[in-house]
Design a protein around this nucleic acid. Structure first.
Lengths: 206, 206
DNA sequence: TCTTAGATTGACTGGTCAGTCAACCGGTCG
DNA sequence: CGACCGGTTGACTGACCAGTCAATCTAAGA
């Protein structure tokens, strides 16, 4: 079939994928490196051939995925569409990531994004970049007059992201239904509510 | 001064207070029980005289504080005031808790509420009760006609709580300013935005 | 003063893993 | 065929720390 040169199996990938499953099932802290090795079907030591530490495995998973999110936010922001649709697209990207690979997103949210004292702290700069991307969308909308100006863009971006993260958490812990239609419905509702509160016109409602 | 009968020092309290400081500074997982003992100025073993385990110390701190929150939500809901003011009061309670004792709130948010895989899971039922309290306020507002009905109350309550938690996280990690006026301003903005998006009238903005 | 119960002490133990490393394997090249 | 080398193996080690416990102290009552 393919050239014999190509390695028949990508061990590194195999280990990363196994790690996702193990981390999602048991959590980063309460799983052993041997669990990852067993799940991947490789020897214990091989994990250390491809990664310098258990931590690095998680870091790799996070960075790999988060850079996609950052790219997506940037790409969406560049589109010539109204702010509400931009936020809708960002929410859609995150929610679709979850729909597509719930285990990976569970790991990222639970073990990194929300793990403020361990990995969350390590990756704060990257996480911040995401907030900032959203913040920029909001700030532009304010400048252009679509969004009200009396709500700080920094804060607004945190609520927006916070609301979505809360959604993911809800799905992860089965606090809210996650049938197929629920994903899109949830996306619509978050965007609707947050944008509804941010757009001008709501301004007088005080 | 006081009766000699009263124990001159409440060791248990002393240990709990020390634990807050240590957990806030180093995080639950990366501190040792001996750190707590040293901070409290007592012997290592005494911690185990008053608590059955390191975990129990944190559980105690959480339960103690969280029950106050649950009581506050219930009390607020009983007041004969419009829904927006109820939500404002709830947000105010949480934010004031942070203002009054940032270290304790940091521990609760970082180590329990957001620690989905460890203590968050243990205390899920209690955490849920808080969501449900907020949900009830929203649902009542929908029934009474103040809030739009096309946004699920369960979801709305999660965003509301999620937004506030994100605020606290922001303060904890110094992502957002926390001068004295910022607290009230933030409270006003969250309530304004979320309620703005939930109240009827925004409904047509689609 | 003696007794006793509870508070307090801190050295020690047992179990748990992350990470190391020497040996082993299988394919390639001269 | 034999030397070589990157990939692969898994037993082992060293560090770490929660929790135990026997000994010591303190104070109140007899």
């Amino acid at each position: 079939m393919s050239a014999a040169k190509a390695p028949p199996v990508d061990r590194r990938r195999q280990i990363l994928d196994a790690a996702v499953r193990v981390f999602a099932r048991q959590g980063f802290h309460s799983c052993r490196v041997s669990d990852i090795a067993r799940e991947a079907g490789v020897a214990y030591g091989l994990v250390y051939h491809y990664f310098t530490s258990k931590d690095q495995v998680l870091n790799e998973l996070f960075t790999e995925r988060w850079s996609l999110l950052l790219a997506a936010v940037e790409e969406v922001d560049a589109r010539p569409i109204p702010p509400r649709e931009k936020l809708d697209a960002v929410a859609g990207f995150i929610i679709d990531s979850y729909r597509h690979d719930p285990e990976l997103m569970k790991v990222i949210v639970v073990e990194v994004t929300r793990a403020a004292n361990s990995f969350g702290r390590t990756h704060l700069p990257e996480i911040r970049k995401a907030y900032e991307g959203i913040e920029k969308i909001v700030a532009d909308a304010q400048r252009e007059g679509t969004f009200r100006r009396d709500v700080d863009a920094t804060f607004a971006s945190m609520w927006f992201y916070g609301a979505i993260e809360q959604l993911l958490s809800g799905w992860v812990f089965e606090l809210i239904p996650s049938a197929d239609g629920d994903f899109d419905r949830a996306r619509e509702m978050v965007v609707e509510t947050i944008c509804g509160g941010l757009e001008r016109g709501a301004e007088a409602s005080r």
